[in-house]
Simulated assay, not measured.
Amino acid sequence: MENEGTAGSVRIDAWIWSVRLTKTRSQAADACKAGHVRVNGARVKPAHTISAGDQVRLFHDGRERLVRVAKIIRKRVGAPVAVQCYEDNSPPPPPREFTAPVAIRDRGAGRPTKRDRREMNRLQGGAKGL
């Protein structure tokens, strides 16, 4: 493919989107604008160009990703190909047991009663007495 390889450079927002670290390119650009993307330790704007060997740190969706650029690609690719374009040095994600339980109701059960609402609030750690 002519768009792949280790030579050249590409915009950081396009590369982050291409290797599937974010779902959309606008999310990647917004992360750059908010200061959640660092290349080789420096905060960067969406138009910053990267090349092979650069260290990229991205904080997105409550998780920190730390990757080293292995390949420069300009177009979004499938997940198996995307994984080959970077070396992932990210810390492991937090365990699922620390996430808050979600109250689940049967479909068609109607509006929750006051008792149901209190039970859902208790499960979610919400305010008492409301």
Rank of each mutant, 00 (worst) to 15 (best):
G5C: 03
R11N: 08
Q27T: 06
S51N: 02
P93T: 11
G129P: 04
E4W: 09
P112A: 05
R65P: 00
V19G: 11
V56K: 01
A28I: 13
P95W: 01
P93E: 12
N3L: 13
S9R: 12
R63I: 13
K23Y: 06
F98D: 14
E87R: 07
I73R: 13
Q124M: 15
A47G: 14
L123V: 08
T49P: 06
A70W: 00
K114I: 12
K128F: 03
D106T: 03
A79D: 11
G110Y: 00
P92G: 07
E97G: 00
G8Y: 06
N89E: 11
V67D: 04
A79V: 09
A31H: 04
A82K: 03
A100D: 03
R105K: 11
P80I: 06
G108P: 05
L123I: 14
R20E: 07
S90D: 07
A42T: 12
C32W: 08
N89W: 04
G53F: 06
A31Q: 03
R111Y: 08
Q27D: 15
T99I: 07
D88Q: 07
V67R: 01
G125N: 10
E97F: 14
G108E: 07
I104V: 15
V67P: 04
L66F: 06
R20P: 12
N3T: 10
V39R: 03
I73S: 06
A79Q: 11
C32T: 13
D88S: 08
A14Y: 00
E119S: 11
P46S: 12
R38G: 02
R25H: 10
H36K: 15
A103L: 05
P93K: 14
D88T: 06
K45M: 10
L130A: 05
P80C: 05
V39G: 06
R38Y: 04
L123A: 11
V37E: 08
K71D: 14
G5T: 03
V19F: 09
T22K: 07
K75Y: 03
K33I: 07
H60I: 07
G35M: 10
E64K: 10
F98P: 00
L66R: 14
R11G: 10
G53E: 06
I12W: 04
R65Y: 13
P94W: 01
V56N: 04
A70H: 09
V37N: 04
G8F: 07
R65G: 01
A70F: 00
E119Q: 14
G41N: 10
R111P: 07
K45D: 10
P112C: 05
I72K: 09
R118V: 09
Q124D: 04
P101L: 10
F98H: 08
R111G: 01
T22E: 11
A109D: 08
A82W: 06
R105A: 14
Q55S: 13
E4F: 07
A79G: 01
G41D: 13
N121Y: 08
